[in-house]
Design a protein around this nucleic acid. Structure first.
Lengths: 219, 219, 219, 219
DNA sequence: AATGAATGAGTTTTCATTCAT
DNA sequence: TATGAATGAAAACTCATTCAT
């Protein structure tokens, strides 16, 4: 079955059938589309199995439980979003403009994931390690936003508000307009609306001016 | 209207064992505390039964299914909140100040109901009649806010923004600060922060001034 | 509450409200129509309650359990049938003709009670006293038929068959034609068919002749 | 018919855990013994599970509900009986003798299934698809008998009776002697009794003679 | 006595997880 | 390794019976 003579590149050849490459990712992706559509408890492992065309045993070989799978999906997604945000933010633009990028990327990410975050509020008493880890991931994400806001404060673009609270306010705004958006709503309009209200709300005179200039340029 | 023979106030000595007075409300209240703590699917009917010290059959006598109970709790709660908001809004104050009242009442309502709204995003394809009714309730609630904003626009306190979107933004802000609030956060501070950002964000110069005056008065 | 002075006619006057006369029978009758339509387990006490317009507590005052009620209905019914059969049989006719009367009365009785006898075969291991009593009632009923057959044997109208088995055969025939009768089937035709086959089957030459004569007379 | 590449007899090494061979039949058999002993509503799925030593989930994997299981048992049983009857009837014997075979096979089949047919008379108003199918099965069974009788009429062994009614009469006779048989009753005696009465009842002179000859031969 | 509300043991069914190829 | 069959603990709901007027 396996060539007995030589295996120069991978000296430590494992026994048995080698793992199908990329299978873990395939599962993860399939699970994401499922979890993004329905609530955690509405999703059945059979659905995931069907969506990604893999055997149930295989699923459990890669993820030891439904919860593990779910959190893996969440972490993966939030990680990707964080990476995107970090990229968006790692430029030389003035901080006030970065807010626009943040809002755009975030809303775009959740555009097709409106129901992505359920379950997070699991019964408090069984705050498992996983749930704690979720909080860590989440705050790593919001950290990116918060840091941007702090830089904006330092640059005099944003008033001296509590950046933690301001971050939650911004995230909440985005969730609100996305979760209950109307059929005709378009991404760019909602982005504009959110940025507009938020930056007027927390910006200084100069911060607001920067955003306004940028907007005019875009249009 | 009432026949003189059958006494209207004591219409007729009801026969059989009379219903335990207030039992329906007791169940509703117990269910609310349970549903507010855990996700719909984590809640078991036995929990509700235990919480309000009533027999399981009785539960089902008043609410024919778990879903019915859940929606009854939701509708009841949202109804109460709407009534509160309508009261808060039915004054002669300038519209800009009403926003403060709205935010205060709403945040106070959800302060102990952080996990109150789950499940609302049930799988879309089984949009049952109940779910549709939920949307009606929800929009009746947001209507109160939206009307206030429109009055504020008319009064020149708020810019000519899309009030539907502005409403979702405001609701989202409140949800955000409440859902992920820190341990030390106090209600009044979060109210102030939300009103501050929102009214600066959407207010006109005069609208902002009114809110600022009021705030100074409160302090 | 009770007149203290004199009660000449009913010296032992009971306390409290006197029982509603005829209530027991009303319940029994209502239960019969219900049980005749549906299987024991399909019938709910609430159905019975509704059918006879009596309170549930009252039902249980007269019959201590669903089983008791059911058996009371059965016994009552079978008793009435037995009485009818005894009347039908207590004439001076030749025995062979009595068979015709038996079949007619029995089929007429079950015509609207096609599903009357279910449950009789309760789980064998819980052969309660009630079930035993049922067997006694049932054999009292079949006894009437069997006696008639024995008289017919003695009279030379019926061959020397095992009358116990012949009785079951006759009862089985009747059940069969009634249970699976077609929509257009009329009582008299089925009676004729059953009597015809049965009497040819067990009758002697003279017995058959008697039945045939009678039939011609009827037509 | 079969592509040469995919081997027809071993079509393709089925993947995953192979179904336990004969499990469906094992369940069906276990369910039959249970349902044959107790009434539908007295039977609990746990009983079936225990009887065939299979997990509850497995039960539901093969039969999606209690009703489905029940009807599967019924259809299976009645099917087998029909096959037996068709075999018994598919000979060159004179029709009158076939009746004897029919009675023998049928009584033998029900000998240990005395309580097999309950529930069939479910509440009429909910004539589900399954119940309708039951009627089809049942009439397919009785059809075999009826056809035999018609052949017997054509052959001059049976009088010109209504064969539909005669069939129900015969089935009813068999049910009666079996359902209320005494402890000492033996199958052959009951078969003889039923055939005797029935064939005398419906037979012509020549039909009776044939049966009588056959009986003497058997003895 | 009569009534209808209240009760909870008991049943069907689901679905995450394990197991045999 | 990958697969799908097998499993059983857990959960919603029913309904005969009891209880408070």
């Amino acid at each position: 079955m396996s060539a007995p003579l030589s295996h120069p590149t991978f000296p430590r050849r494992r026994r048995g059938r080698p793992p199908t490459p990329g299978l873990r990712d395939r599962i993860l992706r399939a699970a994401e589309t499922i979890f993004a559509r329905r609530d955690y408890h509405e999703v059945q492992m059979d659905d995931v199995v069907e969506e990604c065309g893999v055997g149930k045993g295989t699923l459990y070989r890669y993820f030891p439980s439904k919860q593990h799978l779910f959190f893996a999906v969440m972490f993966d997604g939030i990680q990707r979003l964080r990476t995107e945000l970090e990229t968006a933010v790692g430029t030389e633009e003035p901080p006030a403009q970065k807010v626009h990028r943040i809002v755009h990327r975030t809303l775009a990410f959740f555009w097709d994931r409106r129901f992505f975050f359920s379950l997070i509020h699991r019964s408090e008493h069984k705050m498992t390690g996983e749930a704690r880890e979720w909080l860590r991931y989440r705050s790593a994400l919001s950290r990116v936003i918060r840091d941007t806001l702090e830089a904006a404060v330092a640059a005099g673009h944003v008033r001296a508000v509590d950046t933690r609270i301001a971050t939650e306010i911004l995230l909440g705004m985005m969730r609100g307009v996305n979760r209950y958006r109307a059929d005709g709503d378009r991404l760019d309009d909602l982005v504009a609306a959110v940025v507009d209200v938020f930056m007027r709300g927390v910006g200084t005179r100069s911060g607001r001016r920067i955003v306004a200039l940028k907007r005019r340029a875009r249009a």
